[in-house]
Design a protein around this nucleic acid. Structure first.
Length: 425
RNA sequence: GGAGGCUUCGCCUAGUCCGGUCUAUGGCGCCGCACUGCUAAUGCGGUUUCGGGGUUAUUCCUGAUCGAGGGUUCAAAUCCCUCAGCCUCCGCCA
């Protein structure tokens, strides 16, 4: 949600932002009109209500004929007040409806364009050259099978496509990655959190996932719960309707939760393996900061993401995501894509977004500072999305015989194991 | 799932039976000022939140807000209904 006052003062800026995102520009004018209507109906109600309250005081003290006369007028007023109130409520709801459909303002520094128009900020590490090493790399599905780590066949039997079991060393690998991520986050001052995976509509909506992203959200209609696609949702909604003291910021949480995604419209994409699944676990960083600190915090989140991937010895590139591919909440977004050897390309592993005041406004989260109460900024970033990290890890560090070398930093979390070896060998 | 209790402006709390002077009481905390070698104590003032309007030195006018929504009424923190959350007990349960 953006600031209505900004929309009044500088509608062109909002129009430009909508245009760059490929979103509805007309919405801006509809909203301006609705806002005008809301304000005039509201001041009408204010006046009537004021009169009603004044008369009410007189009624309380009046007696006899005087009282009867007053009552006549107040009865009439009562109807007018009700009508004005209804009108105001309706106008207000219309404003909220339109405002809720407006995407966040774009950061002027974000690249303009569609999915393909990202800007590569840097490439880190060198993709391994298996040709030079003289063997053909196995993909993560094959490796997972050899190691007894991943079972997608039985998962299909039990849950259908896009599900998986992590078995044996695979299960241990997830726990190790999660522990390593949580340890890094905790050391950096994040408060570790284990969050609900089912949330109410308000939380989902406030975080900005029920707009264009709604088709990818699981919903339980009988109970009106949503399954979160990321712990960003419960972490953002954690402080819903609260006013936080400015001096306790920045407030940083590292959430661990399962994540559920419908993956609607992705039939035929990444059908093999565990790149694109309906359920996975993830450690997510989330920050509440003063708006003026948001940009710097965004860089910090990115750095923590890089630190984690560096420790795992992965090759990756950092991209600055283009305007059309940001999602409704983000002003700017950096993705880190790791090199996946058997695909011969970079695939998204983590993503960090600066949502500015957008989510905070929708969720009613403010900060109390010297300048009074004002919305704060929220940011999020993936520390470790488990399945894709496992994919990159297995494929990158495999050996000719199907063994996988465990990166040094991860070994303490795997009981000191240095190599994962195929089962039965 | 059943029965009962509770929800008031940061926290605690008065007010709800019996509707109007509630412009919501008091305490704690916090902020400012005064006093004081320093601190403390004391005194005075301020302190829910969100809008709209006027003037912009600053202040003034006004509406909403007592868990949420609806209803009754000229008038609702107060009466009625629905819902949510919390607590206690019973049942069930990892």
């Amino acid at each position: 949600m953006i600031d209505l006052r900004l929309l009044r003062v500088d509608p062109d800026r909002v129009r430009a932002s909508q245009r760059a995102r490929g979103e509805d520009v007309e919405l801006v004018d509809a909203l301006l009109a609705a806002d005008e209507r809301q304000r005039s109906s509201s001041s009408r109600f204010d006046e009537l209500r004021n009169e009603q309250r004044q008369l009410g005081k007189q009624v309380a003290q009046a007696k006899g004929d005087e009282k009867a006369a007053l009552l006549e007028r107040t009865k009439e007023l009562s109807g007018e007040v009700k009508a004005a109130n209804a009108e105001q409520t309706e106008a207000e709801a219309e404003v909220q409806r339109l405002l809720g459909g407006l995407a966040n303002l774009l950061d002027p520094a974000a690249p303009i364009g569609g999915e393909e128009d990202f800007v590569t900020l840097e490439e880190v590490g060198t993709p391994r050259d298996f040709g030079a090493e003289g063997f053909e790399p196995r993909d993560h599905v094959e490796l997972g099978k050899l190691l007894g780590a991943i079972d997608t066949e039985r998962a299909a039997k039990v849950s259908g496509s896009r599900f998986y079991y992590l078995t044996g060393v695979g299960a241990l690998l997830e726990l190790a990655l999660v522990n390593m991520a949580v340890a890094q986050a905790t050391e950096a001052g994040f408060i570790p959190m284990i969050t609900p995976a089912l949330v109410k509509p308000r939380a989902m909506e406030g975080t900005g996932f029920l707009g264009q992203a709604a088709e990818n959200v699981f919903h339980l209609p009988e109970d009106d719960f949503y399954l979160v696609g990321t712990s960003e949702v419960p972490l953002a909604a954690y402080h819903m309707d609260e006013i936080l003291d400015a001096d306790q910021l920045p407030l940083r949480y590292a959430g661990f939760s399962p994540c559920f995604r419908r993956e609607a419209g992705t039939y035929g994409k990444d059908t093999r393996g565990i790149i694109r699944v309906h359920q996975f676990d993830k450690v997510e960083m989330f920050s509440y900061v003063a708006p003026e600190d948001a940009e710097a915090e965004h860089k910090r989140l990115l750095q923590w993401e890089k630190d984690f991937l560096n420790k795992l010895g992965l090759a990756y590139r950092v991209i600055d995501v283009a305007s059309g591919d940001l999602g409704a909440s983000a002003m700017r977004k950096y993705d880190i894509e790791a090199w996946i050897p058997t695909q011969g390309k970079y695939r998204e592993l983590t993503s960090t977004s600066n949502c500015g005041e957008f989510q905070a406004r929708r969720l009613g989260i403010r900060m109390r500072g010297e300048e009074g109460n004002r919305p704060l900024a929220t940011l999020n970033g993936t520390l470790c999305a488990v399945p894709r990290t496992i994919v990159a890890l297995l494929e990158t560090h495999q050996l000719a015989d199907g063994s996988v070398v465990v990166p040094e930093a991860l070994r303490p979390y795997l009981g000191g194991r240095e190599v994962l070896t195929p089962v039965g060998k």
